[in-house]
Computed example of a mutant assay.
Amino acid sequence: MRFMNFHYVKRYRMEMNLLRWQAPVLRLPHGYLLVPWHHSLTQHHAEVKYRSFRDGIDAQVFPCLGELEGCERLMSEIKAKDGFVPEATWLVEYIGDGLRYAEYCGTIQAVRTQKNRSSIQNVGVLAEHRGLGLGKGLMLASLLGMQQVGITQVGLEVTAENRSAVQLYHQLGFRSVRTLYKSVELACAPAGS
Rank of each mutant, 00 (worst) to 15 (best):
C71S: 08
R27D: 07
G96S: 03
D97F: 11
G133V: 03
Y50K: 10
E72H: 12
L143G: 03
G135D: 02
L180A: 09
K81T: 13
L140F: 14
V166P: 10
F84D: 09
G145F: 02
L68A: 06
M16G: 05
D82K: 12
R73G: 04
G83E: 11
V9T: 06
C71N: 08
S52K: 03
L99G: 07
R20H: 08
Q43V: 15
L28W: 04
K49D: 08
P86V: 03
R20D: 06
L91P: 11
L156Y: 12
F53L: 11
R163Q: 12
Y94D: 10
G173P: 06
V111F: 05
P190L: 12
S164C: 01
P24Q: 13
M14C: 10
P24F: 13
V166T: 14
V123P: 01
M1D: 13
R163Y: 05
L143W: 07
E161H: 13
M14L: 12
G56I: 00
V48R: 14
G124S: 04
V158Q: 11
P24E: 14
H129P: 06
V166R: 10
H170Q: 15
Q22R: 15
G56W: 02
Y104S: 00
V61P: 01
H7Y: 08
L68C: 04
M75N: 02
L168T: 00
G98M: 03
L41I: 06
Q60N: 02
V9E: 11
I151H: 03
M14N: 08
V177Q: 15
Q22F: 10
N17Q: 08
A102W: 07
V9P: 00
R73L: 12
I151N: 00
L168C: 05
H129V: 01
C105N: 00
N162R: 07
C105A: 01
K182F: 05
L144D: 09
G106M: 05
L180T: 02
L140K: 15
M75A: 10
V61H: 00
A187M: 13
I57P: 06
E69I: 05
Y94F: 11
V125S: 06
T113N: 07
Q114C: 13
L172M: 06
Q114R: 15
T113F: 02
Q22Y: 09
L134G: 08
S164N: 10
V166W: 11
F174G: 02
K182S: 02
Q22N: 14
R130I: 01
G96F: 01
Q109D: 08
G131P: 03
R163W: 08
Q109W: 01
